[in-house]
Amino acid sequence: MNVILIAVIVLGSIGLVAALILFLAGKKFAVHEDERIGQVQEVLPGANCGGCGFPGCGGFAGACVKAADKGSLEGLLCPVGGQPVMEQVADILGMKVEAAAPKVAVVRCNGTCESRPRIAEFDGAQSCKVQQMLGSGETACAYGCLGCGDCVAACQFDAIRMNPETGLPEVDEEKCTACGACSKACPRGVIEIRLKGLKNRRVVVLCNNKDKGAQTRKACSVGCIACQKCVKVCKFEAITVDANLAYIDAEKCKLCRKCEDECPQNAIHAFNFPPKKSPLPTSPKGGGDKSSDY
């Protein structure tokens, strides 16, 4: 009986003293944090992907609160949660956000193993950054995809995968959150974070080559040669050619697909359109253009 009593008293008093110390320490070293930061962080996805440009969701929440104190949430966007999450954040902070259109990552290179012949063989650490230090790399194109998968390694959402047949990365539109990590990881800037478009439909120039036409053609059979045909055919002035490379402004593009048919190099691609009813009229024309000595 006595032993039990002593044990209870000793343990109990140790417990009490420890509790007291903890209590005092908790008071003394308490960190006062704006409680809104915690609230904001709760509605964020919590993937800590860094796509927003801040170190993790906590950092982004802090930035949101700070920005709200200054009076505007402009320029802050959680690319993962997108509009709905930003609205929730704005609610918590008593602000309003402008609607932002959803975006998606687009690999602007179509230089598959067939269309872009390998002229050298790369041997070394499997990293695009390493290959980039060797100039144009395995192919003669100094602007296209290097194929070592730095973007795949950068993606937190498993939304981008290398296709072993083409040697190019493919974006899973469902999973892609447009966080931009792949775009930053690419040493050649091949990946563009682009407006998703109406019904997810997009028309994109799948080329990043800024060399002159003749050289591009030597390096790759589907590269943009800056022939301006697409510019001429576009009624909406959505296409510009800058530094030997055509670019379609997603905001101006009306998805008419005329440029796609016009491109002699088949460098312009339309995504997520229903299959064409009669593909016959376009194919002979495309073939004819290819053989012509532009």
Binding site: G124, A125, S127, K129, V130, M133
Partner: peptide, 12 residues
Amino acid sequence: RPLLDNIRVAKQ
């Protein structure tokens, strides 16, 4: 191991 390949990336 491709040590220098990696170190070059880090240095850059």
